[in-house]
Computed example of a mutant assay.
Amino acid sequence: MWGRVLLTASLLVTLCQLSATKRVLAHNCVNRCSTIVDQRYNCQCNPRCHQYNNCCPDKVRLCGGGPSSQTRPGRPAPKATRAELTTLFTSLWNADVNRVQLNLNLQSQTSTKSNADTTSQSLFNTLSSRILSKPTYKTFMVLLNNYEHNVGRVEDRSQAEKNEENAFLNAITATPVMKKTRDFWKRKGLVGPSMTDFKNKLREMWFDTYSRSRGVKDSSGFEHVFVGEIKNGAVTGLHNWLQFYNEEKHNRLNYMGWIYKRKRGIIGLKFKWLNKIKSISTIQFGPSPELDIAILSTCFLINPANGNCQFNIDSDKFTVKVYKDTRSPSKIGSAFLQ
């Protein structure tokens, strides 16, 4: 009899262990990092779960991301008002002497749900060598081939690559856009008084590496936002028009159609990059590298509510979404126009 009792107890323990394991698997992000809501589970692993307060406990650790407002409870108020940002960014827009007026071949409209390629031609017709020879453009373009696109593989940030980063920072900080930006940061106490302080802050935000997967230093703010990455078989980031042009030119990116168009060159579009489709990416076409860096960096530093940096340029309304790397909150996880 005791043997039957022990066998029954052993079976009950095993069933409880299996049930517990099933519950654990049902409430974490293992193999579930995605851009969609999975209704089978009580917690989610998509980028917007922070907004709805239904993320799984390990979402940030396994999938990365997290709005800047999630970095700590009781966070202080944003360090600049919408009116202050509107004044600054309108001034920067007007000071952007390197901005380009582009003639894009938009062709057909598409949707996020369609995987059909509705275009027969490239988005870009051509780009003048005169534009690409400008110091901030030239030093920016050199950076684009410095990265391992697959998340989970360590970034080998060589001294030569660091020198290229420094050349880019030297070029942009000499522009009127970044001079105005530095003055604003100093007034707001966002950076130290010297030019070295300014460059170091930019370097830390954009180029210092951190981990998105497996604990290896496999990513940076610049790589994600401006270059793009492949994570779990999907395209993430890639919000820059120069990178779009560069990849299309080298036949690594296929433009599949536009989804929406807004003022000041903002386009939501679909494309296939490295044989992976991105259903939508918002890119502003035409601003100089220094203007992109200035606006995105400032939005990141002011710590906006819910990660939403809202401002106007003249009468046109904008929202930039900013994310911090949760383990290294001084580094940009992502930043892009919504």
Rank of each mutant, 00 (worst) to 15 (best):
E161P: 01
L62R: 15
A80N: 11
W258I: 06
E84R: 10
T119K: 06
G66K: 08
K201A: 14
F318S: 03
N146D: 14
R264G: 07
L253P: 05
V320A: 03
L6V: 11
V154K: 15
E84Y: 09
F311H: 07
L127M: 08
H224D: 08
S111R: 03
I230M: 01
G307P: 09
C49W: 11
L238Y: 07
G257C: 09
K276G: 00
A80Q: 13
L7Q: 09
P193S: 13
S68C: 00
W206R: 00
T136P: 03
D316V: 15
K199Y: 12
L11K: 09
Q109L: 04
C299P: 10
F318G: 00
N98P: 06
N46A: 08
T282L: 05
V191C: 13
L301C: 11
L123D: 06
L144V: 02
Y255E: 06
F311E: 07
K162W: 12
K249Q: 07
K261I: 01
N254K: 13
L92R: 02
V235Y: 04
K180V: 05
F184W: 11
P47G: 03
T81D: 12
R48L: 14
Q310C: 11
C299W: 02
L104D: 00
T209M: 01
Y255R: 02
Q39A: 13
G152V: 06
K317T: 14
N254G: 01
G286E: 04
F300E: 03
T87A: 15
Q101M: 03
G74M: 15
G189M: 11
L132T: 05
R157K: 14
G65V: 01
D197V: 10
K186D: 12
W93D: 08
L274C: 02
N53D: 10
M205T: 04
S219N: 11
T126N: 10
E165P: 01
V151A: 12
N125Q: 09
F285K: 02
S281L: 05
H149N: 12
H250Q: 10
S120Q: 14
N103E: 08
T35V: 14
N246C: 03
E165C: 02
N146E: 13
R187D: 15
D325C: 00
K188A: 06
N232L: 08
V191W: 09
L202W: 05
L88H: 00
L127G: 02
I230C: 00
M256E: 05
L62F: 13
P289M: 02
R262S: 13
S328C: 00
S122Y: 01
T209W: 05
T8A: 14
C43H: 05
S279D: 12
T86P: 11
R187M: 13
F318Y: 09
V97C: 02
T209P: 01
S128Q: 01
Q44H: 10
K199P: 12
I230P: 01
K113G: 13
M1D: 09
D218A: 09
D58I: 14
G64L: 01
V97M: 05
D316K: 05
